[in-house]
Amino acid sequence: MLCQKCKKNEATTYIKTNVNGDVHEYHLCADCAAELKGSGAFGTMFDFDNIFNPMSGFDLVSGLLTSPFGGFGGMPSIGAGKRCAVCGSDFSSIAKSGKAGCPNCYAEFKSRLAPTIKKIHGNTVHCGKHSKVTVEQSNENEIAALKKQLDEAVKTENYELAAELRDKIKAMEK
């Protein structure tokens, strides 16, 4: 197979990148691979020299850890001056410290934090343990929805469904 870049030499290097599920594959010759390495086209993920040093691999990550929002500091600020209702933080202070001001900041600055969170964890949502508080909350939401359906069933005189819903609600309210 010929190198995908120069289309002259035989491809000897295979590179696969996966950025948030966006997968690319490259077949390159040694020269083009070396050139890419020099240009840093693959970012820190494919910093061939550094990646073989365990501590530098870590440093790359820790650099990210110190201020994951740092890269956004220079962006034109949309809605500048907006502050979190709970802790009073604005987006620039979050970007500077790399830390949210309080739990509510994640809701308050949701759209502006989303790209960074995606960058760190990929395009994904939480799975695993849930806090009891929200389990209760989601239960309550579900009960409210069922009650609505029950009203509807009674209105349309669908008593079989209504009885079923009533039992379900009863069980959940226990």
Partner: peptide
């Protein structure tokens, strides 16, 4: 506090 720990 740090988004790197979000989730679990």
């Amino acid at each position: 506090a740090c988004p790197t720990n979000l989730g679990t």
